[in-house]
Amino acid sequence: MPLQALCRILRADRLTSDTFSFLLDAGEMARSAQPGQFVNIACGEGHLLRRPISICDAEGDTLRVVFQVRGEGTAWLAQQPEGTTLDVLGPLGHGFAYPETGKVLVVGGGIGVPPMLYAAKAAPGGAVAALGFRNQQAVILLEDFQQAGCPVKVASDDGSVGYHGFVDALVRQYLEEDKTISAVFACGPKPMLKNVYKAAQDFGVPCQVSMEERMGCGVGACLVCACSVGGSYKHVCKDGPVFPAEEVDWA
């Protein structure tokens, strides 16, 4: 059940030059959150539309979001200091469905990394992570994964950290090495998701992906967040954002 609440920013941290982390006092919204779900945050008077941000972590009454400044809305958000309250709608959408047994390989690319932290922490059978970044400066949340006891492999586009190349190569490495991995969960840019899916497919491991689309209501009422799935338009905010990769129309 989604809720609307005024959530106080308990802690605000800057993770990189353009990426921020907020710990929110979210009460029931935090307690009912599932990995892969998102919240819709009002970003100041001048912006009619809320901004969808993935749930990066939830513990007790606190909810964590990590976001990158992309435009006016996220720029406004980044300026909000600790102690202010945000108008938040959530938790929204359908999250990841964990396999009955086995480990989950969580795969994140860039600002697609945050939701994978929660997905890894909540995995009943444990998780390993493959994270891709543009470069060393863009790396986020590495310690959080390690603190959660989740082994991590990192790739970077320019080779400044970890494997030089794209994250799907790491996915192949993991699936080659570790046959106890029974599902791949991924969030990131669409071309990355497509390649991760291809890798998972080659190893016969089911894959779920978190999709992005521009939103209006965020709750399934306005039908603007259409995404082609299984030959028809599904709605990212309500039917997703997580979809089985084999059902997504990748073209």
Binding site: L49, E213, R214, M215, G216, C222, L223, V224, C225, A226, C227, S228, S232, Y233
Partner: peptide, 8 residues
């Protein structure tokens, strides 16, 4: 089915 995205 409606129009292709982006729709907003």
């Amino acid at each position: 089915e409606g129009n292709p995205p982006p729709r907003i």
